[in-house]
């Protein structure tokens, strides 16, 4: 059921630019589907001169879709590659392919793009900013702007590979993510020591001698309380599934109580 491919590099570039409508269309039912449809519409129009076929394909793109927006171009590019070859008969395959790929890629994309990159550039930028130097901001911007080119090019990469995407890069992507996690964990370890701050104001008076508990704690290990705080937060969020917003509120309330009783000091 193969037909002649009609999409050109120019069409794919255009779709890539239209994808920059991004996550603004996010809704709770179909998530990023409207953005996906908006992105590919000119390509679909070119592939289907017939309005009935265009309608079928458009509605196919309006079905539930969500992945990390920075690697989504790869998924949609590959989907276009399959559809440009198979036409309307391939619509079910296209949807299955998108759904199958978006989950794993979202996991990788969220970890690297949303967790790791802001952590690394954010901590470098923040430590510079604390000294009054705004340079870190531009370092971060330079990276995201450079990566914009990668986001645009992914449509072509995905389109050219089509179904082969999964087999070709499966292992590489997993290993790459794992290696990135090692970098991330090292940085997070240092951030727990430097960024999280917690001190106790408890003192013991024994006769004439006043003992500061914080001094004793520092003698055991530097940054012991921050480590304990992160461990407790991690326990509640990862094991007890406490929501982020509740966790934040709980911390603010605990800090007020700590400040009022003198258990914690600023």
């Amino acid at each position: 059921m193969s037909k002649e491919k009609v999409l050109t590099k120019k069409d794919l570039r255009r779709a890539a630019r239209r994808w920059l409508i991004g996550i603004s269309t996010f809704n709770y039912e179909t998530q990023l589907a409207p953005s996906a449809f908006f992105s590919v519409y000119p390509c679909l129009r070119k592939m289907y001169p017939n309005d009935e076929d265009l309608k079928k394909s458009s509605l196919n793109y309006m079905r539930y879709y969500n992945t990390m927006p920075w690697i989504s171009p790869f998924v949609i590019g590959a989907a276009l590659g399959i559809e440009d070859e198979g036409g309307v008969e391939s619509l079910d395959a296209v949807n299955d392919f998108k759904v199958g790929l978006m989950g794993p890629l979202a996991g990788i994309g969220d970890t690297i793009g949303w967790a790791m990159i802001p952590t690394i550039f954010g901590s470098i930028g923040a430590s510079m900013a604390m000294q009054g130097n705004p340079l870190g901001i531009f370092l971060w911007l330079a990276f995201t702007i450079a990566f914009l080119a990668v986001r645009i090019l992914q449509y072509e990469w995905g389109y050219n590979m089509g179904v082969n995407v999964i087999t070709k890069f499966g292992k590489q992507i997993t290993v790459f993510t794992e290696a990135c996690s090692v970098l991330g964990l090292t940085v997070v370890g240092s951030l727990i020591a430097t960024v999280v701050k917690l001190k106790t104001g408890i003192t013991f008076t024994n006769g004439d001698v006043t003992m500061e508990v914080q001094g004793l704690i520092d003698g055991v290990m530097p940054q012991l309380l921050p480590v304990a705080a992160v461990a407790i937060i991690y326990f509640f969020m990862a094991k007890k599934k406490v929501k982020m917003t509740w966790m934040i509120l709980f911390i603010i309330i605990a800090s007020w109580i700590g400040a009022a009783t003198g258990i914690f000091t600023a």
């Binding site: 951030l191 705080a229 992160v230 937060i233 911390i251």
Partner: peptide, 8 residues
């Protein structure tokens, strides 16, 4: 303490 939420 709040950065701890992010770390977690």
């Amino acid at each position: 303490v709040l950065p701890g939420v992010g770390m977690a």
